[in-house]
Amino acid sequence: MNTYIIRRLIQVIPVLFIASIITFSLMHLVPGDPVAMMLGEDATQADIEHLRRVMGLDRPIPVQYVEWMGGILQGDFGRSLRDNREVLPTIISRIPASFELSLVALVISMALAIPIGILSAVRQNTPLDHAGRVIALFGLCVPNFWMGLMLIYLVGFLWGILPLYGRVGPPFAVLYNWESFTHSILPAITLGTAGATLTMRLLRSGMLEVLRQDYIRTARSKGLSEKVVVYKHALRNGVLSVITVVGLNIGQLLGGSVIVETVFSWPGVGRLVFERFIERDIPMVMGTMMFYGLVFCLNIVIIDIMYAYLDPRIRYD
């Protein structure tokens, strides 16, 4: 098991290396002059030259990459162009808000998606299955920013049930403070929808796959009740696909957070990304991209390790 974990961690390194090259080349290979763009149309040639020197853009590109990467490996992601603060602490300060929102979104979406996904498969082609598939289709096709706005309008404004937007209380207050929690419900639903529908679809097909296996037929033919077959034999094997799906779900949460946090004025990493991307705060852009890449890779590795832990067949691959 330990060798498996180490092997998976080592496999992440080349992927992150390429991700870092993609991030870095964004600045240098994309047509147009990022420095001139950052300074706007009024900048003089001297201004541009100055900023270029300050950012170290006048040196050879390989040297720049090595310096940038060396900094990142030591936890130095550079300084923001806007407020001259260090990039990494700024990102870290926004993590709690994003984390708690993702947590609520994950709980809500899994609490809905897992039962529906399993029941859809067990009762295939019944009205319940069709209803589940309609919900899944809706979640797949609806633009999340629009869904957020509609929720704000309907639930928040017209019916007045929940707060419109914003976040209250200290970090992680959603876990114990009722008001903080109610503020997080609408953004969490919006954020969780994409992952929830993905979960439903994958879990349904995963369970259908398990239900077709020989050991299920054996269980049925030896006279076990349908309940025992489904919950003891099928579900235990179907749970494996749930884990993959939760992992994918976290990926979806990361991706969706930029838009959802912007729509709901939620002060997390996603909102930071949007603000700084709009302002062309390039060091911050590169820093957040590497940060997201790292989180994504770690997420995948954790999922793989859980998977290997629960399914011994994988370890000996």
Binding site: P14, V15, L16, F17, I18, A19, I21, I22, T23, L26, M27, V30, P31, G32, P34, M37, G251, Q252, L254, G255, G256, V258, I259, V273, F274, F277, I278, R280, I282, V285, M286, T288, M289, Y292, G293, F296, C297
Partner: peptide
């Protein structure tokens, strides 16, 4: 491996990054 490197970034993030640089 290059393809893997692209997948690391969540859905719209890389696109946002490119838009941030290119305008």
């Amino acid at each position: 491996r290059i393809a893997d490197g692209f997948v690391v970034f969540p859905d719209l993030l890389l696109a946002l990054g490119i838009m941030a640089v290119r305008g």
